[in-house]
């Protein structure tokens, strides 16, 4: 940096000084650390929402059980498998780019995005079924009162994360198509992977908490 004169530094180099850590390894490590910290805050915000359900489950187990009896576990089990498979596809895609295989990355990520989209679609179907038996966002004076809002809030919040994840996945695929990643530069893929797996982990907890226990 010693050649960089201060006053008349060309705009581009000033931007570069502010925009990039010069060591790409350091940049990748910074990005991953930042993503983990972001996920730390996501842990807390999801826990607030799931916690509201857990408190309800603790004090009103009979209402939760009533809903479980009325609904079919098969659809949501299928959904769980979709998300688990997409997580696997994600990590296989990362493995391909670590071997410099961009086409492999794009193929695996395509699978991942399709699975994520189907997941959101099936969640919509499931919401419709629930609405059909009378589980609503607000209390309707029926036997499921109190369940709906505490169920829809965390699952919908998770659904939004899946939608964002799919869009982000498409963005990463496009970047890969343009050749922006290689075996020595895949921090963007890895960071997205952390996010996607986190969404999967949240679903694993949600699935057990909300549907099974």
């Amino acid at each position: 940096m010693s050649e960089m004169s201060l006053e008349k530094a060309p705009a581009a180099s000033v931007e570069a000084a502010h925009g990039h850590e010069h060591n790409p390894g350091a940049r990748s490590e910074n990005l991953k650390f930042a993503t983990w910290l972001y996920l730390a805050s996501e842990v807390v915000i999801f826990a607030t929402m799931i916690g509201v359900f857990i408190v309800f489950r603790f004090h009103n187990p009979e209402i939760v059980q009533r809903v479980h009896k009325e609904t079919n576990i098969l659809l949501v089990t299928l959904n769980t498998f979709l998300l688990l498979t997409s997580s696997w596809a994600m990590v296989m895609g990362l493995r391909e780019i670590q071997r410099d295989n961009r086409q492999g990355l794009i193929r695996w990520f395509g699978l991942m995005c399709i699975l994520g989209t189907v997941f959101v679609g099936l969640q919509y179907v499931e919401y419709q079924e629930l609405a059909h038996i009378g589980v609503a966002l607000f209390n309707q004076g029926n036997e499921f009162d109190g369940f709906g809002m505490r169920f829809y809030a965390p699952t919908a919040f998770h659904g939004v994360h899946v939608i964002i994840g799919v869009l982000w996945g498409l963005f990463v695929m496009n970047n890969a198509r343009k050749g922006n990643y290689s075996s020595s530069n895949y921090a963007g893929v890895e960071v997205f992977g952390l996010y996607w797996h986190f969404v999967d982990v949240v679903w694993i907890i949600l699935f057990t908490m909300l549907y099974l226990v």
């Binding site: 997580s87 990590v91 992977g193 952390l194 797996h197 694993i204």
Partner: peptide
């Protein structure tokens, strides 16, 4: 399950 994902998939 969550630990498996975090440990292996999230490296």
């Amino acid at each position: 399950k969550a630990s498996l994902v975090v440990w292996f998939y999230m490296h």
